[in-house]
Design a protein around this nucleic acid. Structure first.
Length: 896
RNA sequence: GGGAUCUUAGCUCAGCUGGUUCAGAGCAUCUCGUUUACACCGAGAGGGUCGGGGGUUCGAAUCCCUCAGGUCCCACCA
């Protein structure tokens, strides 16, 4: 069978994924005899597409779940999508607008039809994309935050919290998104630095006729002013206490009130108070019993209450009003001013604070177990430093505004009577029955359900609970680990913890693994708008999915940001971004991953090419013993790294084991010689081949969680497999006790080989030139028996024999020292003896310096008294080694 | 303003409980090599005062203080 020298992942990946699906290897059923290992996917937006953040996140989940599955646990990874209320609704609105349809014209029902249609069309694309990534989810469990089961859970939770008294309606200043025409929670508001203007507006004081200057960035809101506020301690304005002022344009008389809230240092020390459009002003208004004039419509235009500029957008009005104020002589000056302006996370629109009646959830009490159980590590954060961030969030939590003025979402199960009273119930029928107890003559059509829907996170927070049927829940819950970005600690992680303790009195997950943000070379977060996110499918095509998985994992310590070394646009100018979009993404990390795949592929080719000679004796005992020990040592290290979620270290370790130890060392050690005449390799003995195949098998199983496709392909072809077998359900390798002695012996052998190679390089010797090696050491067998063939093969050495230095011609011999043994290589060329002497002297000097420092340590009484015995033991050994080394070097010097 | 976190080789980063000569890996650079699995390869080399200063300790990249710089989160912003 001819096997290509290049590994081509293209057909292989799809083939095996289909195979896995066909045999339902990823399906999980409740089974009390098996330990569950559960992960719930952070549900991506239903209409989203796969980007680098998802790749990182889901690769980690896949690694953890695949390993657990191989370990014989009942691995259950539940996939699904989020309805993403505001984001999806915004997309549907835009789509309809392009068709010339306005949301308000078609009404709720028709709009939802369009939305569901949209969801059916584009929803779940991302799940297909996850399959390309190799995600081993139990696809039969695929859930959606707005499907029947999840909806029921959301409504039940609302009713539960309402009946407990935690959910209430309240009139508050809220963050209003005039584009989406909905309220947002304060976490959905992103503050951006903007260059704006600070307008100094003059107000006339009624009693004195003087002009009082007030600084504002939002002059249009003067139409809603209902007071002027000064600090009672401000001596500049003492004479104005109890006076009134006239709001320009509106010509409204408003009181001048006193409050220490006002910062005397800022602006002029006078504050205009607009209770309907600023939270602080609202609080002042409440305190001082001020009138509240709401001048804005839902879409950000001014309403009749403003009295002027009715129907015009707030930003248009800002300019117009500034101009008019100027013409009226009411502007003292306008300064450039940098301030932060709240914008909507989803629509980008500038947020308007607005007085509005909304549903809230009281959070303080609910948070108590959520804080406690993170701080005491009942739920473990990785890395733990995120506990601090979490703590500050939870401690400063405010009531959660859970209502949204949208249609795409879970409609609030509150029903209003014409009287304004309301009932909360699971269905209209129940609500009607309840309503009748308030008003026995109520007609059905008089009972109206609340128009609002719930915040998206009000369904996501139930995700780990709502994914499982009642009879499964106690088995799968709490889940094992949550893998997510730290940017949604507050939105999601905290709320899931709260819901978990509220509903189940149990944590939702044992561990939380926080990934960093994927950034470009300029350390900018990858985003669509910057155009700096590489096309993940191009990456998969170019490097293979395994290669890309390797690339992203190799550099992703938990919580650390990943600098994804992709080409980026030179600037944010549109033409640069466009030009970038046309170039192919590139990444060194993925390239390493692809190269690694190829290395494995070629090791596989090599082993497959060997022919067995049944009569040959077992030839590779030493190599086998060494590699077995080395592998077990690495297995133990990797296992530890898994438990600490140090996956990038684990994958590097596995790579080094396979590439450096197995391919570069072990295979070279056992590789049969080449028969020059027959132009092919000599045969191998059957025992060595069988063991090597077993090693390779084990290595593939070790690597499988990281690189599932190539490992399956190789594993399937290594030895004949039965139908329905797969590496993804094969056993995960377990570390066994290993012999440290042989590892350190082999290390000195490799050091000898390295010295020989070094000499070859320095003396520019041809690789084909066979060298002879003489040595002077106590343990002769180590070099002439046990590791003789290793030295011969790896160092391209002929004879190896013990010898006295003095018997060799110094001017034609090069020497080196490894541990306490001296080695000599006679060469056919003159050696610069002085140069050799200098080299040895330098080495002696170094060793003596080292010895000196060790002796100093050992003669220090405080060290000997305080250091642990094993540390002292190590120092003693170091001393002995150095002394032996120096002795050998000095002998060597003497012989020159 | 409050808090977190980082600063180690040209670049990206490991370095875990202070303890081996602990100063490391990958990439990049340079030299050499096409022979027999792999040039997506192999053999080598160079490269760091661990941000600066101080302290604790027998011992510090690691702990503490301080200064400088970066990043992130929160709060305020008329």
């Amino acid at each position: 069978m001819e096997i290509s020298t290049k590994y081509d992942p293209k057909d292989i990946e799809g083939k095996w994924y289909d195979y896995w699906l066909e045999h339902k290897f990823f399906a999980s059923k409740k089974d009390e005899s098996k330990e569950p290992f559960t992960i719930v996917i952070p549900p991506p937006n239903v209409t989203g597409v796969l980007h680098m953040g998802h790749i990182l996140n889901n690769t980690i989940q896949d690694i953890l779940i695949r390993k657990a599955r191989m370990e014989g646990k009942n691995a259950c990874w539940v996939p699904g999508t989020d309805h993403a209320s505001i984001a999806t609704e915004a997309k549907v609105v835009r789509m309809l607008r392009e068709k010339g349809i306005k949301k308000s014209d078609i009404g709720r029902e028709k709009f939802l039809e369009y939305a569901w249609e949209w969801k059916e069309k584009y929803g779940g694309i991302i799940l297909k994309q996850l399959q390309k990534l190799g995600a081993s989810c139990d696809w039969d469990r695929t859930a959606f935050t707005m499907d029947e089961k999840r909806s029921e859970a959301v409504i039940d939770m609302f009713i539960h919290l309402y009946e407990k008294g935690d959910v209430y309606r309240g009139l508050r200043i809220v963050n209003w998104d005039p584009e989406a025409k909905t309220v947002l929670s304060k976490e959905e508001v992103i503050y951006k630095d903007l260059n704006s203007k600070l307008y100094f507006v003059k107000y006339k004081v009624v009693e004195t006729g003087e002009l009082l200057t007030i600084a504002t960035t939002r002059p249009e809101t003067i139409l809603g002013d209902t007071a002027i506020c000064i600090n009672p301690k401000d001596e500049r304005y003492t004479h104005l206490h109890g006076k009134t002022a006239i709001v320009p344009i509106a010509n409204r008389e408003v009181p001048i009130i006193l409050d220490e809230y006002v910062d005397m240092e800022f602006g002029t020390g006078c504050l205009k108070v607009t209770p309907a459009h600023d939270e602080n002003d609202y609080n002042l208004g409440k305190k001082h019993n001020l009138e509240v004039i709401d001048i804005l419509n839902d879409d950000g235009t001014l309403n009749e209450k403003a009295g002027f500029f009715v129907g015009e957008d707030r930003f248009v009005v800002r300019k117009k009003i500034a101009k008019q104020l100027e013409e009226l002589g009411h502007i003292e000056k306008i300064e450039d001013y940098k301030n932060q302006v709240g914008t909507s996370e989803r629509t980008g629109a500038v947020i308007e604070p607005k007085l509005s009646e909304q549903w809230f959830l009281a959070m303080k009490k609910l948070c108590e177990p959520a804080l406690k159980n993170v701080m005491n590590d009942a739920i473990q954060f990785h890395p733990p430093s995120f506990k601090n961030m979490y703590k500050s969030w939870v401690e400063n939590i405010q009531d959660w505004n859970i209502s949204r003025q949208l249609w795409w979402g879970h409609r609030i199960p509150a029903y209003y009577l014409p009287s304004g009273e309301f009932v909360v119930a699971k269905s209209f029928e129940e609500a009607y029955a309840k309503a009748l107890t308030i008003n026995p003559s109520l007609k059905k059509e008089e009972l109206k359900q609340d128009e609002d829907v719930l915040d998206t996170w009000a369904s996501s927070w139930l995700w780990p609970i709502s994914l499982f049927d009642k009879d499964e829940l106690d088995y799968y819950y709490p889940t094992s680990v949550l893998v997510t970005g730290f940017d949604i600690i507050f939105f999601w992680v905290m709320r899931m913890i709260i819901a978990g303790y509220e509903l189940k009195n149990e944590k939702p997950f044992e561990h939380v693994y926080f990934t960093g943000m994927v950034r470009d070379k300029l350390r900018r977060k990858m985003s669509k708008s910057l155009g700096n996110s590489p096309d993940v499918f191009k990456l998969m095509d170019k490097y293979g999915t395994d290669g890309m998985r390797y690339g992203i994992m190799a550099s992703s310590a938990a919580g650390n940001d990943i600098i994804f070394d992709t080409e980026v646009p030179k600037s944010q100018k549109q033409e640069d971004v466009d030009a970038f979009a046309l170039t192919e993404p590139d990444s060194k990390l993925c390239e390493t991953g692809r190269n690694f795949s190829n290395k494995i592929w070629n090791a596989f080719r090599l082993i497959k090419s060997w022919e067995v000679d049944e009569n040959l004796p077992y030839q590779s005992e030493t190599a086998v013993q060494w590699f077995r020990a080395k592998m077990n040592k690495t297995l133990a290290e990797v296992e530890k790294q898994y438990t600490q979620f140090r996956l990038s270290e684990a994958i590097s370790n596995v790579r080094a084991l396979i590439w450096d130890e197995f391919c570069s060392n072990y295979l070279e050690m056992i590789k049969p010689d080449y028969d020059q005449e027959a132009k092919k390799s000599l045969p191998i003995d059957k025992e060595t081949l069988a063991t090597t195949l077993a090693f390779f098998d084990e290595l593939m199983r070790l690597l499988h969680p990281f690189m599932p496709f190539i490992t399956e392909e190789v594993w399937q072809n290594l030895t004949p497999r039965k139908a329905k077998e797969s590496i993804c359900i094969a056993s995960y390798p377990k570390a066994e006790a290993f012999d440290n002695q042989i590892i350190s012996e082999a290390e000195s052998i490799f050091e000898i080989v390295q010295n020989i190679n070094n000499i070859r390089n320095e003396k520019q010797l041809k690789k084909s030139l066979e060298l002879d090696l003489f040595f002077n050491a106590k343990d002769t067998d180590l070099y002439t028996q046990k590791f003789a063939s290793t030295i011969q093969k790896l160092g391209k050495v002929g004879k190896i024999s013990p010898v006295q230095a003095s018997t060799l011609e110094p001017s034609k011999t090069i020497s080196f020292v490894v541990k306490d043994a001296e080695f000599f290589i006679p060469l056919e060329l003159e050696i610069d003896v002085e140069e050799e002497k200098a080299k040895i002297l330098k080495e002696i000097e170094y060793q003596k310096g080292f010895l000196n420092s060790v002796e100093k340590k050992l003669s220090n009484e405080r060290f000997v008294n305080n250091a642990p015995p094993q540390v002292i033991e190590v120092e003693r050994k170091k001393k002995a080694d150095a002394e032996a080394n120096i002795k050998v070097l000095e002998e060597s010097l003497g012989s020159l």
